[in-house]
Amino acid sequence: MPATTVDPPTVPYQRCRWCRTPHAGPRLLCTTCGSTDLDDELSPGFGRIVRLTEASRRHGRPKQRCLVAVDEGFVVAATATGLPGAIQLGLRVRLEAPADELRRDFVVRAGA
């Protein structure tokens, strides 16, 4: 049986060493316990869409903003592009870091 490979982690986040709460994006303090002792970790970026906004058409391609609850326990904003069919709440997706380093927005792709 061939071994399955998993792409390297793509979503950086922080986890509090005291209460183990995960946080999206860089923080100075844990929002749960106030600790400054945060570890940098990486997530493969799998999660589910938990909130959607209206779709917009910029530059001819439809884009939809959404919030994704990542399996590790934090929520990030993302742009859903190129997903087949209707985008709906609960859809299993994978986050990808933006190709342009100046943008801080993740891109959502249909995932396992």
Rank of each mutant, 00 (worst) to 15 (best):
R51C: 12
L52W: 09
E54L: 10
S56W: 10
S56G: 05
R57I: 14
R57H: 12
R57Q: 09
R58S: 11
R58D: 07
R58W: 05
G60D: 03
G60V: 02
G60N: 04
G60I: 01
R61L: 08
R61Q: 10
P62L: 04
P62V: 10
P62G: 00
P62Q: 02
K63T: 14
Q64D: 01
Q64S: 03
Q64E: 03
R65W: 07
R65E: 12
R65A: 15
R65K: 06
R65N: 09
C66K: 03
L67C: 03
V68A: 01
V68I: 04
A69C: 02
V70A: 00
D71A: 02
D71F: 00
E72A: 01
G73D: 01
G73C: 01
F74W: 03
V76I: 14
A77H: 11
A77T: 14
A77M: 11
A77S: 14
A78K: 10
T79G: 09
T79Q: 13
T79W: 11
A80L: 11
A80D: 10
A80T: 14
T81W: 12
T81S: 15
T81L: 15
T81K: 12
T81A: 15
T81V: 15
G82D: 07
G82Q: 05
L83Y: 05
L83W: 04
P84A: 15
P84R: 14
P84H: 13
P84K: 13
P84M: 10
P84C: 08
G85Q: 05
G85V: 06
A86W: 04
A86V: 10
A86T: 14
A86L: 09
I87R: 05
Q88M: 07
Q88R: 15
L89R: 07
L89H: 08
L91G: 06
L91T: 14
L91W: 04
R92E: 14
R92Y: 05
V93L: 01
V93W: 00
V93S: 02
V93G: 03
R94N: 02
L95R: 12
L95F: 02
L95V: 03
L95M: 10
L95S: 09
E96Q: 13
E96R: 15
A97Y: 03
A97N: 03
A97C: 04
P98M: 02
D100R: 01
D100Y: 00
E101S: 14
E101Q: 12
E101G: 06
E101L: 11
E101M: 07
L102F: 09
L102Y: 06
R103L: 13
R103D: 13
R103T: 12
R104A: 08
D105Q: 14
D105P: 00
F106R: 13
V107H: 12
V107R: 14
V107F: 09
V107A: 10
V108P: 04
V108H: 04
R109G: 04
R109H: 07
A110T: 14
G111Q: 00
G111C: 00
A112R: 06
A112C: 02
